[in-house]
Design a protein around this nucleic acid. Structure first.
Lengths: 201, 201, 201, 201
DNA sequence: GATGAATGAGGTTTCATTCAT
DNA sequence: AATGAATGAAACCTCATTCAT
C-alpha cells in the first residue's frame, strides 16, 4: 500500500520500488541543481522524472523532507565512498589535507550536478547549523591531531577548517560563472594556500 | 500615478514615498535574515513592516525582484561606505588585504542581520553568477596589482580572491551555529591565513 | 493584508469585510446542510458563495476550523436569541421544560438549514464530547433544581436531559425523510412524553 | 476473475475470499469507530487490516459504498441475532418495549466499537433518510399494535419510536464524553421514561 | 488472489499581483 | 498614498481506483 519507508529503515524493498525511488531522487537532484532548492517543487521534479502526478512522489516518500533527506544521504554516501579511501591512503596531516582538498574538488568536478544540489540542500534545509559544525568537525579534529604531532603550526583549527571547506565550496560559484574552469588548477591553488597557512613557521 | 521606479532610475520621489520604501526594505532584510530567502513572502514582510496590505509592497516596488534588488543595493552601499575608507586608508597590498578582511568581518559583526540577508539574496537570487565574479573582481585586481608591485608571491589571483571571500563569509554559518563566536579572533585567524598564503616566498 | 480575525477578537472590521465573512458563513451553512459536513469542501462553499477561488475563504478565515467555528457560533447565538426569552418567560420547571422543547422545535422548523448544519458540525467536529456535555448541562441543572423544588419526580437528571435533547434532534432525520412533517405536532408529542416522564408520581 | 459481488448477490465465494472480506470489514468498522466516517480512508483501513495495498479493498469490494454497506449489514445482522430472541421472548407491548431498550443498550455496551461505527455509517452515508424510517418502523408498528390492544395510551407512534431510538443512541455521545458510564443504569432510566410516557392514563 | 505502483482528481493553503475605493 | 478585497496559479498532500505482474 505504501512504499514509504522514512528511508532509514532496513531495506526489504523490491528492485522496482528502489528503482522508482532512485529515479525520483535523481530527478530531484537534477532539479535542485538547475533551479535551486526553493524552486524545486514536486511538480518540476515529477515532470523531469516523467511521472504523471506529484502524488507519485508523495506515494514513494514521506513528504519533501524525506525526499530531500534521501537525496542528501545518497550524495554524501557516494562522496564518502569516492573520497574516503583516497584520503585515508595518505599518511600524516599535511598529506591528508592535500588529499582532502584534491579529492573533494575532483569529486565536485566529476559530479557537479549532485554536489551543487547537495550544497543547495545543506544551505536551505532547516537544521543546517548543526550539520555545518559536523561537516567541519572531521577536518577540525585532523588539524588538532596534526598540531599535537607537530606537523602543523599554530592556528585555530576550527577557523582553518571553515576556511578550507569554504575554499573548496567556492568552486561551485566559479563553475556557475565560468563553466570551463580548470578544476585541477583550482585544486592546486587551494592546496598551496593551505599548505602555506598550516605550515610550521 | 505609480510610485514604482524599477529602482535604478533617478529619484524624483517624494520624501514620504522614500520613507515607505526604506521601511519596506528594512522589513524585507529582517525577514530574509530571520526566515531565509525562500520563506520571506510579501505577507511576512508586510506584517513585519506593519503594513495593512501586501499590495503596498507591489505599489512601491515593481515586483519581488525589484524589492530584493533595492535591499541588496542598500546593504552593499552601506558596506562600501563603512569599509571603503578603512581599506583605502592603508597603503600597500598586504596592509590593504588585512584591512579588507578585518573591515568585512567587523561590518558583519556590526550588522549581522543585514549581512545575513545579503548573503541569502546573493545565494538565492537569479543572476548570481554574474554578480559573484563582480564581487571578487576588486579583490582579484588588488592581488594582481600587488603581484606586479612585488608585494605578493605567485598565485592565481582569482582563486585567492575566492578563498578570501569565502573565508570571510564562513563566519555566517559559524555565527548561526554558535552565536557567541568571537568575531575579532575569527578575523585575526583569517588575516593570518592569507598573510601566509600570499606572502613572497 | 489579512482579514482573518480568528473570529473571537473584537470587531473593528469594516462593513464590507463582515459582509463577505457573513456571505461565506452562509454558503458554508447551506453547503454543510445539503451535502453533510464531510463533503462540504472549500471548493463547494466557494462555488456557492460565488467566489472565484477557495483562496478567498483562506483569506477571510484562518482555516476550515475557524470558518466552522464562526458558523457554529452564529447559529448558536441566533438560537439563543430566539429561544432564550421564550424559555425564561416561563415560571417553574415543568413550564420551562415545555417551553424549551417547543422553542427548540419551532426554531428548527423556522431555520431548518442552519440547524441541520449545526447538528452536522457538532457531530463531526473534533471536541464534540466536551461540547455535548455542555449542551445538556443547562437542561440537566434545570431538572436538578426542579427536583429540589419538588416540581419533578425522581429520575437521573442527566439521562433525562439526554433523552429530551435527542428527542428534539430526532426531528432532523424525520424532516429529511418526510419534509412535510408537522413540526408543531411533533413538538406537542415530545412535550407530552416528557411531561409524563418527569411528573411526580 | 473478480471477487467483487456488489455484495447482495448469492454467495458462491470461496472460504478464503470470504475470510478476507470479513477481515476487511472488521478493520473498516474499527477504523470508522475510532476516526469517524469521514477520516476512515482505504489507506487507514488497509493499514489496520495488515493489507499491503488498498487495491485489495477495491478488489474485494465494489467501491467504498459497497464496503460500508456490508459492514452495516454485518453489524445489523449481529444486532438482530443478539437482540431479536430476547425481545420476542417477551409477551405484550410494554414488556417488549422494555426488552427492546434493554437489549439495545446491552448490545451497545457489549460491542461499543461496532455500534459506534454503525451509528457513524448511518449518519454519514447517503440514503440515510430512507433507512431511518425503516429503522424505526418496527418500533412504530409495535406501538401501533399495542395501542390497538389497549396496552398503550394515546400518542403518535412514530414520534414515540423516534424518541425511544434517539434516547438509546444518546448513550454513544455520553460514553464518548464519560467512558465509565453505567450503561445498565442508563437503560433503566430510559425504560422508566418510556414506561411512563406510553402508559394508559 | 495478492501486490504495490500508478493515476488523476481533489483537498487546504499560500503566493505575488491587481484593482476599486 | 493607502487600503484590503479579489484573483488564479501553484504549493504539498491524500484520496479511491485501476492495472500489470
Amino acid at each position: 500500500m505504501q512504499a514509504k519507508a522514512s528511508s532509514s529503515e532496513q531495506d526489504g524493498r523490491s528492485f522496482i520500488e528502489n528503482a522508482r525511488r532512485a529515479q525520483i531522487v535523481r530527478a530531484a537532484l537534477d532539479t535542485i541543481a538547475e533551479l535551486g532548492f526553493a524552486k524545486a517543487s514536486f511538480a518540476k521534479i515529477a515532470k523531469r522524472a516523467g511521472l504523471s502526478s506529484t502524488g507519485m512522489i508523495s506515494y514513494h516518500f514521506d513528504g519533501k523532507g524525506d525526499l530531500v533527506a534521501e537525496a542528501m544521504r545518497d550524495v554524501l554516501a557516494a562522496a564518502a565512498a569516492a573520497m574516503g579511501p583516497r584520503i585515508r591512503a595518505e599518511t600524516g596531516g599535511p598529506a591528508r589535507l592535500r588529499a582532502y582538498i584534491e579529492a573533494n574538488i575532483a569529486f565536485i568536478a566529476e559530479r557537479p550536478t549532485d554536489m551543487k544540489a547537495l550544497l543547495e540542500i545543506l544551505r536551505n534545509n532547516a537544521g543546517e547549523p548543526a550539520w555545518f559544525l559536523q561537516s567541519i568537525s572531521l577536518l577540525e579534529e585532523a588539524f588538532r591531531e596534526g598540531q599535537r604531532a607537530g606537523e602543523f603550526g599554530e592556528f585555530d583549527p576550527r577557523v582553518m577548517a571553515i576556511a578550507v571547506r569554504q575554499a573548496i565550496d567556492g568552486i561551485h560559484a566559479l563553475l556557475a560563472a565560468e563553466p570551463r574552469t580548470d578544476t585541477a588548477a583550482y585544486a592546486q591553488q587551494v592546496v598551496r594556500i593551505f599548505a602555506l597557512a598550516t605550515a610550521r613557521s
